[in-house]
Structure formats: C-alpha cells, structure tokens
Design a protein around this nucleic acid. Sequence first.
RNA 1: GCGCAGGUGUCAGAGUGGUCAAAUGAAGGAGACUGUAAAUCUCCCGCCUAUACGGCUACGAAGGUUCGAAUCCUUCCCUGCGCA
Length: 378
Amino acid sequence: MISFKILKKSKKSRARLGVLKTPHGEVQTPAFVPVATLGAVKALTFDSARRTGAQLLISNTFHLHLRPGEQIIKKMGGLHKFTSWDRPLMTDSGGFQVFSLGFGGEHGMGKILKEKSGLQIKKGDQPKTIKIRENGVEFRSPINGEKLFIGPKESIKIQESLGADIIYAFDECTSPVADYEYTKKSIETTHRWAKESLKHHKSKQAIYGVVQGGRFKDLRIESAKFIGALPFDGFGIGGEFGDDKKAMSQMLSWVVDNLPEEKPRHLLGIGYLEDMIPAIKSGVDTFDCIVPTRFARHGIAFTRTGRLDLSKTIFLKDKNPLDKKCKCEVCKTHTRSYISHLFRAKEINAMELLTFHNLYYFNEYVGEIRKLIKSGKI
RNA sequence: GCGCAGGUGUCAGAGUGGUCAAAUGAAGGAGACUGUAAAUCUCCCGCCUAUACGGCUACGAAGGUUCGAAUCCUUCCCUGCGCA
C-alpha cells in the first residue's frame, strides 16, 4: 500500500508539496517519473538512474507481458528483484497502447494535436489493427503479429504478477481527433473497465484509476467525478490534452477540481519542461514522460538555454559542457564537442551521457519547482 | 614497355544505346518526437530558377558514329594488378 501526505498547499495555485510513501521508499512530490517501459531506463544502468535523482519509475504492462512475460518476472521475484530497481515503481496498464497501437499509429499522430488534419473519429469507429470490445481490446503483437486480448481483468492480473508498488486500471486513451460522441462512449468503457479493474484487484499494491474525457469539459468532469468516487489510491489523468499549452491547464483544472484532494494525482505521459509548471500549478503531483530519454537517444540535450541538437557539427567546436550551470557528472566531465563526436560516431556512450544529463536536468528542474512551492512562490 | 582490369555526382558503388541529374549506401544539411512498435521517422542533398513531369551543365579528356551516348568507336591522359 501507499500513503500520501500533503505537506503544503499553495495559496497561489492548486500546486501542493507532498510525500508519497511506498513499500520501496518515499517520493517527494511533485516528481518527474522517468519511463522504463521494458524494465529499463533505456541507455542507463539503474545505478546511473538513481544518480540522476529518479525517485519513481513507470514500466509497461503491455510490453512486459509480450516480453519476457509476467510469469518469468514473477518467477524471478517480481519487477523490483528482476530489474534490481529498489525504489518506487509503477506499471502502466496498457491503456496507452489502445491508442498508440490503434488510432494513434493508424493516423500517425500522438496525443497532442499538432495540426488540423481533417480526420475525425466518430462513435462506432474502430481502429484497423486492433479491436476495442466491451471487456477489453484485441491487440496484435508489434513483435510478431500474434493476437492477444487484454482487458481490465488481464491487465490487473499481469500487473499483480509484475508486482510494482502502484498499478493502473485499464483504460482507453483517446485520440485528439475523437469527436464528442466517440469520447462520451469511450469514457463509459473506461469507467466500466475501472470498476472491473478494482473487482479483479486482489494484491496489496496501490491502484490508480484513470480519468479520460478528451478535450470536452463536461466529459472530463464526469469522468473525474466517476473515477474519483471509486476506492482508488490515486488517480491518473490521461488522454489528449488539447492543441495548445493553455488548453492543458484548463483541462487539468476541470479534472483536479473533481478529484478527492487528499489522494495523489499522476499526469500520464506529459511533459516537456515547459509543461511542468502549468501541470504542477494545476494540481498534479507526479508525471511521466519519455521525452528526456527518447530525445537523448535522438541527440537532444535539454539545457537552461534551450534544446541542443548534438548531432549538429557546430558542437564539435564547442568546449562548453552541455549546460554551464548543471551539476551533473556529465556536465562536470565532458564537453559538447566530445558528446557531439560520440553521437555522430554512433557510439552508444553518447546516448548514455545525454540520457543521464536530461534526466538529471528534468529531476533538478522539478526539484526547483518543489522549492518554489515551499517558499510560496508558486 | 607489354598484358589485364578500371576511371560515374562529396565518397563508395550500380547503370552498358533512349523512360538518366543517373539505383543504393555513406557522409553532409533541415525537421519531427509528450502514459516508448522510437539508438526511430520524414525531407533535402550538381547548378539555376517562376521549385515545375522547367532550364543548364554533367558520368577521365578530345574527337567520332547515331534521330538519340554514362553506355558504341578512335586517340590521348590517369589508376590498380601481373609480367618484363
């Protein structure tokens, strides 16, 4: 089980400072949650991940079910023992894959709408590659194409075998091009699955319910009220978040105002650095995102002066560290020149160094935000 | 000197009479990425431009054959290997 203690509530916003206690230690919130989809922070050892200041990781039910399979992990003593990660851990339910392997993949879009596409998902529409049924989803394995079925019952069973500290109810993450009627129907499904998830939940792990509702105010509120009234230990906020930054804060406030105040809230799959303060001010306690890790593998470093693309030749002549003020071990020891060279030469160290720095920087950034809440500035 | 093989865009390397500014890589350039099918993906990459199924210049050099040549012929230059 977990417990969540709110240490301070901001007078200026919905932001709050807290401590999330889990069987594997405490998390100072607000906290950034690095993603370890397959039971690894890509490019890093867990020892390194700890040194970046990572407090809590999120792994993925769908992907671990496919490979190596939850039975293997259970036999190895659960995810913590299997991986050697000894700090708090959560597993996502596979709900995001309903989107990413469904409409998301089909339409070639993420959950943040970049440009008007003219596409619209209407009530009754189904993605081509997967089928969303009453009790779950017929997936196709991205590895070998085999059919598999995951619903709330399956997801919870898998997550119980994996044994993370916090698990999630199975949900449908909706597309930014889903229309009102589709989204309305979808939250009915997500709500039904939430109750089913609770029904099949037998372990002592904490379980979070997931709020959906797309960009529609009444649906977000309805979903928050419904999920918030169920006996979950905390709440995930998922789905699309509109096509501009203001919209996200707006949508989060609709949701947060209708969730129980004393329970932790996790914003699923957001954010960029610039999303953090708005999300935290909207009352979010934890949030995960693949950005620092994936972008690192694509050559991008996040710094106080913006993003740097280390694949550019210009950095070969740059003696500076990635970020002059950063105290991380990468910035203390390496130049942009060297890291750029490694990246361009496709040395895997480049990914390690960039991933380390990015995670350190993200964690540091949230740490600063915690200080701002503490000192009453946010 | 003789024999053999060969000289293609920044590089490597296809192409052996038209559909060739020339496959494919690489290098180079630009962009994307928000609960990870992502060490991935997209675009540009001879020059000019009104950016188009446009113009120009190009496949070692110079001539030639042909309606048409990177592709065939002649000479020359150069490179590699072998033999003297």
